[in-house]
Design a protein around this nucleic acid. Sequence first.
DNA 1: TATGAATGAGAATTCATTCAT
DNA 2: AATGAATGAATTCTCATTCAT
Lengths: 183, 183, 183, 183
Amino acid sequence: MAAAIFARKGVTNTTVRDIATEAGMLSGSLYHHFASKDEMLDEIIRNALDADIALDEALARSSELEPRAAVRELLHRGMRFAVDHPDVSAIMRDSSKEFAGTATYELIRRRDRAIRLAWTRVLERGVTAGAFRADLDPDLVFLAMISVVISFGRWYRPDGPRTMDQIADTMCDLLLDGLANPV
Amino acid sequence: MAAAIFARKGVTNTTVRDIATEAGMLSGSLYHHFASKDEMLDEIIRNALDADIALDEALARSSELEPRAAVRELLHRGMRFAVDHPDVSAIMRDSSKEFAGTATYELIRRRDRAIRLAWTRVLERGVTAGAFRADLDPDLVFLAMISVVISFGRWYRPDGPRTMDQIADTMCDLLLDGLANPV
Amino acid sequence: MAAAIFARKGVTNTTVRDIATEAGMLSGSLYHHFASKDEMLDEIIRNALDADIALDEALARSSELEPRAAVRELLHRGMRFAVDHPDVSAIMRDSSKEFAGTATYELIRRRDRAIRLAWTRVLERGVTAGAFRADLDPDLVFLAMISVVISFGRWYRPDGPRTMDQIADTMCDLLLDGLANPV
Amino acid sequence: MAAAIFARKGVTNTTVRDIATEAGMLSGSLYHHFASKDEMLDEIIRNALDADIALDEALARSSELEPRAAVRELLHRGMRFAVDHPDVSAIMRDSSKEFAGTATYELIRRRDRAIRLAWTRVLERGVTAGAFRADLDPDLVFLAMISVVISFGRWYRPDGPRTMDQIADTMCDLLLDGLANPV
DNA sequence: TATGAATGAGAATTCATTCAT
DNA sequence: AATGAATGAATTCTCATTCAT
C-alpha cells in the first residue's frame, strides 16, 4: 500500500499523509503501526529482499545447471522478481539515491553483490566449459544482462501483449546468440 | 554546478541552499541569476538535450550505414551522451519522476521518442537487408539495447580501466553476435 | 481573530505569523486549519457577505416602502453592516486592492453591484413618485450616499457619543432635506 | 512616476524594482536618487501636501465668503485636489494604513486636521448666520461632506461624461438643499 | 487504536538595500 | 550616474513527528 505510493511518486515525494490517506486514516494514526517513515520503507524493502538475498547467495554457491540453461535461469529469476515485487523494484531502481547511506540502502547493496556473484560464477563456468566466448569481458557481460533485467521493470506491463516468460526467452536468445544472422 | 548536485542527491533532495553554498553565495542570491529552482533544472536539461534531439531526429530520417555499423553508431552515440553529460544523464535516469508533468519532462520524453524512432529504423533495415535475425521482436531488441545504454551511465567511470569506446565495442559484439560460442 | 488583524494592518502587511501568534500557536500550525492565507481571507469575506448579498439582491427586487423611508432603510442597512462586520468592512474599504483579481475580490464586486442596483431602484421610484428632485443625476446621488456609508466605517466608534441609528438618521436628514435652511 | 505605481498597486505591493523598471533603470540605480523607498513615498506625499496644507490652514483663518458659497468653495477645493493629485489621493485613501506611524503619515493627519478645521469654521458661521440648519450635528455634516470628497477620487474619471465642476455643483446642490422635493 | 491539534525544523522565494566596478 | 552581483531578513508553506484525549 505504502509501497505502491513510494513507487509511483518516489520516496521523498511521498508524504506520510499520502500514505495515511490511502490507508483510510489520519497521518498521526500511522505512528501506531510504524515508528517512522524510514521504518516503513525499510520494512517494505526488507520483506521483499530477505528471501531473495538468501536465494541469490545460495545460487552463487550451488547451481549445477548447464551454462546456457543457467543464464536463462538467472534472467528469468531477475525478471520474476520485478514481476512479483513491482513496487520494490521501482523504489530500488528510481528512488534508492534518496536514501543513500541508510541501513536500508546497505541491504540493497548486499543484494546487488549477491546477484553479481551468482552471475559471475555462471559466466565463468560457461567460459571454462567452452560454451561461452572467452573474448568478452565478463564484467561487461554481467552489466549488459543486469541492465536488461533492471530496465525490464520500467516498461513491463502485466497486461501487455507478451508474458514475462516470453520476454525473458527472447532476451536470452538475443544475449546468447546475438542479433546478427550468422554469416 | 547545480547539475552535479542534482545528479548526486536527486532533484527534490537538493535544496536551493545546497546549490548556493556550492556556488559560494547565499540562497537568495541565486535568484539574481535564476527565476526558480525549476528554471535552473530546465535550463540544465535543455542545454544538454536541444542539440541531441536535433541529431536524433536527423538520424531517424537519414543514415545510410550498413546495419551492423549503424547499430555500433547508435550504441556509441548513446554512451557518448552519458559521457559528455553525466549529470544530465543521472538526473534523467534517476530523478525524472520527480518532475513528471512539467515542460522539462516533456522535453525528455520527446528525446526518448526520437531515439526510439532512430533505433527502430536501423533495426528494421537490418532485418530487411537480411543482416539481422527476423525471429526477434524488434521492440524487445530495442529495449535491450537502450537498457544497456541507460544503465551504462550508472556504473561508467571515466578513470576506470576501460574507455567508453572499448565498452561500446564489447557491448556491440555481445549484442550482435551473442555470448555463446557458435556450435 | 485573523479578520481583526487583516483590518488593522492590511492584508499584505499581516503575516501568517501575526495571525498564529494572536491565536497562540506557531505559524505552521495554522495550516492545520486553513490551506493558505488566501483561503483564510476568503472565508472571512465570504462568511460576512454571503447572507448580505442575498439580502441586497432580494431588496433590489421587492421593497414597497415609501421613497423617504426606503432611503432611510438603505442607509441604515449599509451602516448596520459596517457595525456588524467592522473588520470585513475595513478590509474591503482599505485592502481590497491588495487582492484584486481573486475570486474573493469578485465576491465583493458582486455585492457592490447588488447594492448599486437596490439603491438605483429606490432613487428611481422616488423620482417617479415625485418625492425626489428630478434635476439631480441619480448616479451622483447614489455615489454621494454610498460614500457616506463607506466612510462611516472609517470613523464610527461603538463606544462613541452617538449610536449608529442616530448617525444614520442625521445623515438621512441631511441627504434628504439638505444642510441649508429653506428660504 | 513612482506615485502612479504606488497608487495602482498599493505601497507595500509596489517593489523598488517595479519603480526602477518604470524609470528605465535597475533597482540598485534608484538609490542614487533616493535614500530609501520610504523617502520616495515621503517626497511624493510632501510635494503634494505642503502647499495644500498651507492653503487649508489659511482658509481656516480667513474666508469671508457667504456660507453657501463657502461650502461650494470647500467642496470644489477638495475635489480639485483629487483631480490635480490623483495618485497621491489614491495613496492616502487606500494605502495610508500601510505606513501608519511614520512621519509621512503624520503629515497626512496634519492635513486632515487642517481640513476639518476649515470646514468646521464654515459650518459654524453658516449656522450662526442662519443660513444652515442648527439641528444637524456639525461633526456629522462635516463627515458626510468629506466622505463625498474622499470617495470622489475613487470613481472620478477625467475622460468621463461629467466634468469635476459639474459633479461638485451637483453634490453641493444635494448637500445644501437635499434630495427630497420640498413639501 | 484512532483522532486532531500542535510542533519545529526547514523549504522556496521575495525584496529593500549595499557596494565594487 | 548606472550596473549587476550579492546580502540577509522576512515570508508563505510543507511535513515528519508528537501527544493529549
